[in-house]
Design a protein around this nucleic acid. Structure first.
Length: 366
RNA sequence: GGGCGGAUACCAAAGUGGCCAACUGGGGCAGACUGUAAAUCUGCUGGCUUUACGCCUUCGGUGGUUCGAAUCCACCUCCGCCCA
């Protein structure tokens, strides 16, 4: 396992950290956003289309991939990179959150979780050891420890239980992981700063090469989320990368980056893109406290005759090659899958260039 | 000229005496979506208003039957098919 993978080049007065995370498939300039390829594909895009967007790292999921196609297939391919045809970095989520969010939970005990598959209802057992076994085969550049998300809203007793199990499972995850990449710990603690602090402290003591803040962007307010991040990051090691799982909207990312977060992933650009919501603008104000952007619903008849690009100021491969609002609207109207490709490419470009802008604006002045 | 079938809201299409401002699709409009069971889900879609088990105007047109008509009757208009 790499040890000095993360170089924190500079911390901006805003609190934003500018760094580089060296991984097995190239450097990740941080702050960075990871497009989501849960099932081994960024929905609506080919890997070539993803590659053209130049993300340095994307995310895939242990839970989904272990159910389908299963480890036999990915193992036969020689790991997830080869299976997907992806030569940049990969992060795999551990499955802890998915079991909560989509599987039918059967039993949760100290050892692990039993649940019913969302695909065929079959009984599946997941433990820290099993998650690590799967992730070892997937062999990502970053694997995530198996955590216990308490749900939202969660009572303090549930949060306490979640923090204790998450720490114990993080330790077991670390023991069991055999992959080539880095294994990150995940902080829980609900909306209770004192439990966030305790979770962060316990995980920090385990000396992971990176840390995620989990259990956010699950229904809490912007203010709560900001407060939790601000009270959590001080208890994480300065020189290790920090990842806010599932965050978020552009303003959430800006707020989180100011709280000292380095990595993000979120379904918003792709999912909302497939639902016709297009992100435009994305400029940062002078003191990096606000991101100016708008969204439009492209399937609205307001764009029936609008022959301008999705965002006239955007330089993505869609907006610069003659794709118009009217045409995209038309594709949505007739349920043409190319519509989802167009909006996914555009929205991902929006997110990736927002991160680029944040990085550029926080470069050390010479 | 004769026979038969049809005309319902933006479109398509149910409804054949009261529970009908009218099923359902589509289209339109609005909204949701934050570690993706999500090309998904929700609401609205005649008008008005105190948005209400409220009032008004609607089911090709006119007139009629009836306590009551999108639904029954007469005539008319238009459309389709068939026979001359």
């Amino acid at each position: 396992m790499l040890n000095q993978a993360f170089t924190l080049a500079h911390t901006h007065e805003s609190g934003i950290r500018r760094g580089v995370l060296q991984l097995g498939h190239g450097p990740v300039e941080t702050p960075a956003f990871m497009p989501i390829a849960t099932v081994g594909a960024v929905k609506a895009l080919t890997m070539q289309q993803v590659a053209a967007l130049k993300p340095s790292i994307i995310l895939a999921n242990t839970y989904h991939l272990s159910l389908r196609p299963g480890l036999e297939v990915i193992s036969a391919a020689g790991g997830l990179h080869r299976f997907m045809g992806w030569d940049k970095n990969l992060l795999t989520d551990s499955g802890g959150f998915q079991i909560f969010s989509l599987a039918k939970l059967v039993e949760r005990d100290l050892d692990g979780v039993s649940f019913r598959s969302h695909i065929d209802g079959s009984l599946v057992r997941m433990t820290p050891e099993r998650s690590m076994e799967v992730q070892t085969v997937l062999n990502p550049d970053i694997a995530m420890s198996f955590d216990w998300f308490p749900g939202f809203p969660a009572k303090e007793s549930e949060v306490e239980e979640s923090v204790k199990h998450t720490s114990a499972w993080a330790s077991r995850s670390k023991q069991a992981f055999r992959g080539d990449g880095l294994l990150f710990g995940i902080v829980q603690g609900g909306m209770f700063p004192e439990w966030r602090e305790r979770s962060a402290a316990e995980l920090s003591a385990m000396d992971f090469p990176g840390y995620a803040v989990g259990g956010l962007a699950v229904g809490e307010s912007f203010t709560e989320r900001e407060r939790i991040l601000q009270t959590t990051t001080p208890f994480l090691p300065q020189h290790k990368p920090r990842y806010a799982m599932g965050v978020g909207l552009p303003e959430d990312i800006l707020s989180a980056v100011r709280a000292g977060i380095d990595l993000f992933d979120c379904v918003i650009p792709t999912r909302e893109g497939r639902h016709g919501k297009i992100y435009t603008g994305g400029m940062l104000n002078d003191d990096l406290t606000r991101v100016e952007y708008h969204t439009i619903n492209i399937s609205s008849s307001a764009y029936r005759l609008d022959m301008s690009p999705l965002d006239p100021k955007c330089e993505c491969s869609v907006c610069t090659t003659g794709v118009t609002r009217a045409y995209t609207r038309h594709l949505f109207t007739i349920d043409e899958p190319a519509a989802f490709t167009i909006t996914s490419v555009h929205n991902l470009y929006f997110y990736l260039s927002l991160m680029q802008r944040i990085r550029d604006r926080t470069e050390q002045a010479h």
